[in-house]
């Protein structure tokens, strides 16, 4: 029986607990790097308040399969002076078609970000919310459009 657990294909054997833990650790580093980029993209003197102190629980199926204890990963909250918020949080590392995804959520809107790169060289993209559905580069312009929609 093959276990499908990441985008490199199917695997006859599960990875070790240590391998899963190491990949999770690299995932946290990628998330922190992504959040740091987003912080730099925020318009200066805009009054936004950033918070990276919160963490969310993580307990993916593969972690459970290898007996790795549930953990936590960082999220990023951006609060506008008017109280509206835009929150980024990880929503899956082991995925088919990408190398991890992040959700961005505002009051009534959400976006899906997918890393199409590698652990060492991330390449973040974001899906358009309306047709035609396209995956576009998640850069400063894309982020600021998102921020404007979220306000």
């Amino acid at each position: 029986m093959a276990y499908v657990y990441d985008d490199s294909g199917e695997h006859e054997e599960l990875p070790s607990k240590e391998e899963v833990a190491a990949r999770l650790s690299r995932w946290e580093s990628r998330l922190n790097a992504l959040y740091a980029r987003i912080e730099k993209w925020l318009p200066s003197e805009s009054g936004y308040v950033l918070d990276r102190s919160s963490r969310i629980p993580v307990n993916e199926p593969l972690m459970q399969a290898v007996g790795l204890a549930p953990g936590s990963l960082p999220k990023l909250s951006i609060t506008h002076p008017d109280g509206s918020r835009l929150v980024f949080f990880p929503s899956g590392l082991w995925m088919i078609g990408g190398n991890g995804q992040v959700s961005a959520v505002a009051d009534r809107l959400a976006w899906k970000l997918v890393d199409r790169g590698t652990d060492d060289a991330p390449h973040w993209t974001v899906y358009t919310r309306r047709p035609p559905i396209r995956s576009v580069e998640f850069d400063c312009d894309a982020f600021r459009r998102m921020l404007a929609e979220a306000a």
């Binding site: 029986m1 093959a2 276990y3 499908v4 657990y5 990441d6 985008d7 294909g9 199917e10 599960l14 199926p61 593969l62 399969a65 929503s91 899956g92 590392l93 082991w94 995925m95 088919i96 078609g97 990408g98 995804q101 997918v114 899906y127 559905i133 995956s135």
Partner: peptide, 27 residues
């Protein structure tokens, strides 16, 4: 790869349950 993954999911054996669905559709 797609077909094998489909079979794994259909038989409840896929551990990587998150899927980039639009990417699959475009492929």
């Amino acid at each position: 790869k797609l077909y094998r993954t489909r079979s794994e999911i259909a038989h409840g054996r896929a551990l990587s349950a998150v899927v980039d669905v639009p990417n699959t559709a475009r492929t």
